[in-house]
Write a protein that binds this DNA or RNA. Sequence first.
DNA 1: TTTAGGG
DNA 2: CCCTAAA
Length: 567
Amino acid sequence: MDSGPPTLGLEDGTIDVERLLVEPHDGHASMDSVIYFNEKTPENAMDIKDVSCSFGGLDTAIAQEGEDILNGEVLDSMPNEVEFGYFRSHNDFCSMGDDYLVGVEFAESITDLDYGSSEGLAASVSDNQMQSTSAGSDTHWKSSLFRIKQVLDCQKAQLDIGSSESDIPSCNKCEMLVEENPSISPGSCTVQNIGKTHNSPSCSYQDIISDGNDGGHSPSDEMFCSPMTQKNDEFEVTGQDGETNIFPWQEALTSVQAKCTDLPTQKISRKPTQRYVDELTSVQANCTDLPTQKRSRKPTQRYVDELADPIPPYSRKRREASTSTLKDKSLGVKDHKKCHVASRTELPAEESSVIAIQVPFGSLAHKECPKGRTCDLAQHVDARNLMTKPKAIHKKRDDCIIAMTPKKRDDCLTGAHQKKRDDCIITESPEEVSGRRKHHRLWTITEVRKLIDGVSQYGVGRWSRIKKLFFSTSAHRTSVDLKDKWRNLLKASGILDQGRQGEKKRNMAWRPLPKSILRRVCELATIYPYPKGQRPKIPHIQHDSPDRSTDITLSDYRRILRSINGS
DNA sequence: TTTAGGG
DNA sequence: CCCTAAA
């Protein structure tokens, strides 16, 4: 009953299952239990069989799915079925409700169910379980147990695991990583351990489990490693002492097999008995053990960010003062997220393939880059900054740099430099977020195209609609952004006169926009005069579709289709 | 809340 | 992009 210190390994070499079971690794997780196999060897096949045996009646899925396995054809059929895959089993024992996910009840429930699957259910349960059940909230447990017993009574004859499945409450799936992989736990449980476990009655599974399980944890994935955790482990855990682990595991598995070998070849050995449970537990222990260890080792981004986030010396009081706090907050959060996440994930996916259209005249050489991979970023950035209105330079320089580096470098640099760039961005973004302005994200050609399509479809001024339909995926780009961009496009197209000649000249720098885009902008501009219509409103807007481009565009196509269909 | 428009 | 006024 005194399980001692929370160490995983007990003195006698066994595993402190309790801890493993009770400790939620990941807060919660589905009780998926899957048995992974990494090798196609017959031994593994046996493993599966064994495991299923161990689960006994609890695991119907395995029994069913791996029927042939259990029927003794393991060696032949197994490898194919199981190789590197996993058996997903809907375990009945996982079916206990939330009530079971707490402390003693849970563990006991498992045990009970386990027994329930065996012939000795009645005896075992009545003798051991009932007595040991002291918690007050065990009504559920009892009822479950009762049900199980009923089921068994009714179906004892056929000994069909599957029969109990339907009667036992909904079940969760448990995953169990039975990899020989080095990634598996650093020797928390060795062969010897397993052996001892099943050899020493004092350390029976049940004992261990019921031993002081009052922590009130929710062992959601207790007994079997949760899928999530495990999968993470698969990747995150690099074999530190992998080599040493391989061996123990193989042996462990072998021993487990051995135990099961004497079981009837019939698919159901109704009596897993304590040994198997113990072994299973041991195996599980190995799996379960992983998460905790791994989790500790990942300082990663967050800390980097925090360290790099030196609360901006000056916060934009302007914004704080003027805008509502709510809005600011949401924006702040959003932006913040964007900086950390979007800049790394979203950009590559969405924008990396496309180049921004704004190309300073300083580098006309690149402007015609069709697909746009302009590569001398520094040049671009500098040129852009220099081009900016003098008064704006002081304020925009950093913005531009920050904004442009991610994208353009994404386009141009290879993965080798990626990390460095990310760091750079991350380092700067916090300041930007809280202190200055929204991340300046250049418009990609695809975005511009979307905008144009949107305008052609909905007309100018329906920015929010366009945003909703065309930019739903890009969290940035508010309707205001769309509007601004459209305005800029008009400027770039020379449609919107800035009034000053200088402006026009500067517009030339934007000309690198694909002609098709500029043309479409012009066309749309004639159709949809920019709000407040400086230009004569062209009254004649065709019936259903506003699109008026001369080239065949998607919207044209749609319009034509529509007209055809209509008539 | 969305748009328009100035900065 | 930001901000604000207006609707």
